[in-house]
């Protein structure tokens, strides 16, 4: 069961919850589970977010595995220059 942490203002859409314990093998399934637990998050998640697993940022890879003891953060969609 990985701990998934939302960025500050995202928790407003999850009725104030900042953290979720989610059992999912990879990023895609984790986001799907999160979206069904907090449906108001779904549009934001669908538009694209960045996921940090143990400090490494993933902008794209939905199949990146999440270990049960991984630290997962949902961060805004990012772009560079």
């Amino acid at each position: 069961m990985a701990k998934v942490v939302l960025w500050g203002s995202l928790s407003r859409l999850a009725d104030g919850r900042k953290e979720f314990d989610i059992d999912a093998p990879d990023i895609g399934r984790m986001l799907a589970a999160l979206g069904s637990e907090a449906p108001k998050l779904k549009p934001i998640l669908d538009k694209g977010v960045t996921v940090s697993i143990d400090g490494t940022l993933y902008r794209l890879d939905r199949f990146k595995t999440i270990d049960p003891d991984s630290e997962v953060f949902i961060l805004p969609k990012m772009a560079g220059g």
Partner: peptide, 9 residues
Amino acid sequence: RSSYGPTYS
């Protein structure tokens, strides 16, 4: 822990 949340590698 980074200021934006995750732990740095």
